[in-house]
């Protein structure tokens, strides 16, 4: 087990380097950050050269990358377009996005598994078809459409929730954006759960559980659900990273000042430190979530052994 974790952590190193290098190249090589600073006016060549030198931009790209990575490991993520250190932006943005992710994740897990279980237990009946149609609809409609529709109807027209999220992102304001953000994943979770439940409910050990005289509730929760959730948990775990990074559209619609918002601003103002810095942290979160899922797998399924 310990050796497995170490091996996995070592495997993460090339993945981390690869992803950050790609992002770095894309952001730095495809735009001119110095030109972006000056907006419409052309910069004075001497000043531009000075800035380039200060920002280490007068070196070859691989060297720039190494320099940047070295800086990151000392905690220096550079400055955003506003002049604030990127770490400061992260300090305010990540807690907000984390709160949104928690709300979305809870909605995704509870509603997704619930709907999937319902459909799986009532295969071929009305509830099953209903869930199937619902998930299809949710997957087919883009987030910005559901986002604006829900914001308009639930938030503005019916006044059931705040159409925009207040400063500090209180949980009560995050329910509506949480639903929007969770939508597509929720549909996948429901379908995955349904398939898994349907498959496992025909298993021999389930017949054994019934033959033991266990109450139906126990048969379903202890024996059926426990087995059926193994693939679902995998999906949920990897989706945490996706939810955090995928909140760009949702955060914009509901005016949430989180990671998505900052990333959007960074791209808009062509500010490389913001974009690369935030993405680097997201990559780390993604990798950590993946490792956690793989370790959780062994807890859920004792047949899996790590060597």
């Amino acid at each position: 087990m310990g050796r497995y974790v170490i091996r996995r952590l070592l495997q993460m190193v090339p993945v981390f380097i690869g992803t950050t290098f790609l992002i770095f190249v894309m952001v730095y090589a495809l735009g001119d950050p110095v030109a972006a600073m000056f907006g419409d006016r052309a910069p004075d060549p001497a000043t531009a050269a000075q800035i380039r030198h200060d920002l280490y931009l007068d070196h070859p790209l691989p060297l720039q990358y190494l320099h940047y990575m070295g800086q990151i490991f000392t905690g220096n993520f550079g400055k955003a377009a506003t002049g604030q250190p990127v770490t400061e932006l992260m300090g305010t943005a990540f807690p907000v996005t984390l709160r949104l992710t928690i709300v979305a994740f809870a909605i995704e897990a509870i509603a997704g598994i619930g709907l999937g279980l319902l459909a799986g237990l009532r295969r071929g009946r009305f509830a099953d078809s209903g869930v199937l149609a619902f998930t299809l609809l949710v997957v087919a409609i883009p987030t910005f459409v559901t986002g604006y529709l829900l914001q308009y109807f639930v938030g503005v027209k019916w006044g059931l929730a705040n159409p925009a999220v207040a400063d500090g992102a209180p949980f009560s304001d995050l329910i509506l954006p949480g639903v929007v953000l969770a939508g597509v994943s929720l549909a996948y979770v429901a379908r995955l759960t349904r398939t898994s439940v349907a498959e496992n409910s025909r298993a021999d050990y389930l017949r054994t559980a019934v033959a033991k005289g266990l109450p139906r509730r126990r048969v379903v929760t202890v024996h059926l659900l426990r087995n059926s959730l193994i693939p679902v948990v995998t999906f949920l775990g990897t989706d945490i990273g996706g939810l955090m990074a995928g909140a760009v559209v949702t955060e914009r619609i509901f005016n949430i000042h989180g990671v998505g918002y900052q990333l959007y601003q960074g791209i808009l103002r062509q500010n490389p430190p913001t974009v690369v810095g935030f993405v680097t942290i997201l990559v780390l979160i993604f990798l950590a979530a993946n490792l956690l899922v793989d370790l959780l797998y062994a807890v859920l399924d004792p047949r899996i052994r790590y060597a």
Partner: peptide, 12 residues
């Protein structure tokens, strides 16, 4: 049951 491997719950 006939096949104890499939008749016993694998994760308990």
């Amino acid at each position: 049951f006939q096949d104890a491997l499939s008749a016993l719950n694998p994760v308990l």
